[in-house]
Amino acid sequence: MEVRTIKVFTTVDNINLHTQVVDMSMTYGQQFGPTYLDGADVTKIKPHNSHEGKTFYVLPNDDTLRVEAFEYYHTTDPSFLGRYMSALNHTKKWKYPQVNGLTSIKWADNNCYLATALLTLQQIELKFNPPALQDAYYRARAGEAANFCALILAYCNKTVGELGDVRETMSYLFQHANLDSCKRVLNVVCKTCGQQQTTLKGVEAVMYMGTLSYEQFKKGVQIPCTCGKQATKYLVQQESPFVMMSAPPAQYELKHGTFTCASEYTGNYQCGHYKHITSKETLYCIDGALLTKSSEYKGPITDVFYKENSYTTTIK
């Protein structure tokens, strides 16, 4: 009895394709271990004539594949690729409408935090270190965002349907971005203890939790000093293409032309909904596939993004 075979390709990165001759009487799992086709788990399936010449994702289970996976995804987590594939199996079914010149995501599976993050990423200057993220990001900007969303979920250790947080998501993504040249110098002034300067680099240099107003941050924000008295913390120097200011959701007025974009969060910790506000020729609110415009805006804002380049204080 002759062994019926077909020729397929296996890959971990969709760049390096490895030619395989597979036995049609055995499952993919018996031949390769966990195997995925377009995100779908085909591990328990036997090869079919229609699979001839198709590319299958496999887990990096030998040295060659491990090197290829690390170079593309910059992670050695053995569960990463499987999590990416199972997320992709959902995100490829989502709709990605162009809204006001940006790629958004039609609401499904509690994905409003991903839509808000995706919209924000198209408006701030950011370059990702893992080629996987950078490639998928370019495709997302062009309207094909399924891979990018699935990668975000995998890097953030999230599953489809789980509630997510924009600030946490951005923080994970910033860790995989090139923020080497970003720098922030802060000064804390206390009447009792004097003053202390701190220099922050990388992710810490672009994120701040405690106030939404970048102007206020430049002037000074009140913080408790270690001595128990009130101290003032203010920005001395900022070198970065953008800054992200966050605070627990509270009524906040966004003035046209003073910011790049913002995240609105309605609801409580267990259950809520994100919308995205962007400042173009007027203010726009993007909620999944829905767009509304207004000249002014007041609502429960939790993150505001500002364009920056270089700032030095005039406070002496």
Rank of each mutant, 00 (worst) to 15 (best):
T19D: 14
R184V: 02
P224S: 14
L119A: 07
V206R: 02
W94M: 06
S240N: 01
V166E: 01
I124T: 02
I223T: 12
D41H: 09
H51A: 07
L121G: 04
V42F: 14
S294R: 12
K183C: 08
N16E: 07
K158M: 03
K93I: 07
D165M: 07
M207E: 05
D303A: 02
T64I: 14
K280V: 10
S171C: 15
P60N: 07
K255A: 10
T91S: 04
L17R: 11
T43V: 06
K93W: 09
Y234N: 03
G29P: 05
Y36H: 06
I277W: 15
I6W: 07
V243F: 02
E281R: 04
I124D: 04
T198V: 14
K44N: 14
F148L: 13
F305C: 01
P34T: 13
Y36Q: 05
I315A: 15
A87N: 15
A69N: 02
T5I: 10
L37G: 07
I45N: 15
C193M: 04
S86Y: 08
D63E: 13
G272M: 01
L118W: 05
V166P: 04
I152T: 09
C193E: 03
P300N: 14
T198S: 12
L133K: 07
G267D: 14
T75R: 07
G143R: 03
Q122H: 03
F128S: 04
F217A: 15
S213W: 01
T302R: 00
L133C: 08
G39A: 15
M24W: 07
E2Q: 10
Q30A: 13
L291Q: 13
M207D: 04
K293C: 13
L173Q: 01
A154W: 03
F70T: 08
S104C: 12
L88K: 05
K219L: 10
A69K: 00
P47E: 04
P131M: 05
L291R: 08
K233L: 15
M24V: 14
I277D: 00
D287Y: 00
L254G: 00
E144M: 08
D38Y: 09
H74V: 03
A142H: 15
F217G: 03
D13K: 05
S79A: 15
N14I: 07
P34N: 13
V12A: 08
F32I: 12
T10I: 09
Q197N: 09
W94I: 04
N268E: 15
S86A: 15
L59T: 13
I45F: 15
T278W: 04
N187Y: 07
L186V: 15
E68F: 01
L126Q: 02
T27C: 12
D23K: 13
A117R: 02
G272D: 00
C156M: 13
V203M: 11
C156Q: 08
L121S: 07
C182D: 00
G228T: 05
L212A: 04
N268Y: 11
F128G: 03
S104M: 10
I152L: 08
L200C: 11
E144T: 07
P60R: 05
Q238Y: 01
A145G: 10
N110S: 01
S79I: 10
L290I: 15
T43G: 13
V99F: 14
G82P: 15
D135S: 09
K44M: 11
T282G: 15
L119D: 07
D23E: 13
L254T: 03
Q196A: 10
K298E: 12
K106F: 06
Q195W: 10
Y113A: 06
G220P: 12
N111H: 03
L37W: 14
C182N: 02
Q195D: 12
K183T: 15
M26G: 10
Q238K: 01
G161E: 05
V185G: 01
Q30M: 10
Y208P: 00
E144V: 06
P131T: 03
I315M: 15
F56E: 03
N49S: 13
T258L: 07
N129R: 15
V58I: 11
Q270H: 10
C156V: 07
E52Q: 13
D23A: 12
T314E: 09
A231P: 01
K201M: 10
E52D: 12
K183L: 11
D180W: 06
T282V: 12
K158G: 02
Q196D: 08
A262T: 00
T43Q: 14
F242E: 02
T226M: 10
E168N: 09
Q30N: 07
T192D: 13
E253R: 09
D303Q: 00
T11W: 06
M85I: 10
C193L: 02
D62T: 11
P241A: 10
V8N: 06
I286Q: 00
K106Q: 11
F259M: 01
K218Y: 01
S240G: 06
T302Y: 02
S263F: 01
Q20K: 14
Q216A: 13
D13C: 04
K293P: 11
G220I: 01
C285E: 12
L151F: 04
S25T: 14
T211K: 02
A177Y: 01
H48S: 14
Y172N: 15
I15L: 15
Y155K: 05
T55F: 06
A262P: 01
E253P: 08
E281H: 03
V8R: 05
F217Q: 01
Y306L: 00
G53R: 13
H276V: 02
V188C: 08
W107P: 05
H90A: 12
F80K: 04
L37Q: 14
K298W: 13
V8I: 13
K54S: 13
L151T: 03
V42H: 13
N100G: 12
Y234A: 05
E281S: 07
C112I: 04
R184M: 00
G53V: 07
C225M: 00
G164Q: 03
Y265V: 00
G33H: 06
A140E: 07
A40M: 13
L118V: 08
Y274M: 00
H176I: 07
K127L: 07
E125V: 05
N309T: 15
Y155I: 06
T103V: 11
I152P: 00
R141N: 09
E125T: 08
N61S: 13
L173T: 05
D303F: 00
P60L: 04
A69G: 06
V160R: 05
L291I: 13
T312F: 11
V221W: 04
N147V: 10
I15D: 06
C156N: 07
W94R: 03
Q175N: 09
I45V: 13
S25G: 11
S79F: 08
A108C: 12
I223D: 07
E215C: 04
P34R: 10
P224V: 15
A262E: 00
S104F: 06
R184A: 15
Y311L: 10
M24K: 10
L291W: 15
V243P: 01
A117F: 02
M245R: 00
S171L: 11
L254A: 00
I223E: 10
S86T: 12
P97Y: 07
V12D: 06
Y214V: 10
Y274Q: 05
V58F: 04
T43I: 07
I15F: 13
E239G: 02
T260S: 07
L81H: 09
L118A: 01
E125I: 05
L283T: 07
F217P: 01
S310Q: 15
F174T: 04
H51N: 08
I6M: 12
S86D: 15
G164N: 08
V22P: 10
H176S: 05
D62Y: 06
K191C: 13
K219V: 10
S279Q: 06
A117D: 03
K7P: 11
Q196F: 13
E204L: 07
E308W: 02
Q222V: 10
Q230M: 14
K127E: 12
Y284K: 01
Q251V: 11
T232W: 11
T312R: 15
A142D: 14
K275S: 13
T232D: 04
Y265W: 04
K275W: 00
F80T: 04
S279A: 09
F242G: 04
N16A: 08
G29M: 10
S171A: 13
Q251M: 14
D23N: 11
G39N: 08
H90M: 11
Y297C: 07
D63W: 06
F148P: 02
C285Q: 10
G202I: 00
V166T: 03
G288K: 01
Y28G: 03
F174I: 01
T76I: 14
A140K: 06
H256K: 13
A150F: 03
L114W: 00
I315R: 15
V3I: 12
W107H: 02
L291F: 15
F9G: 04
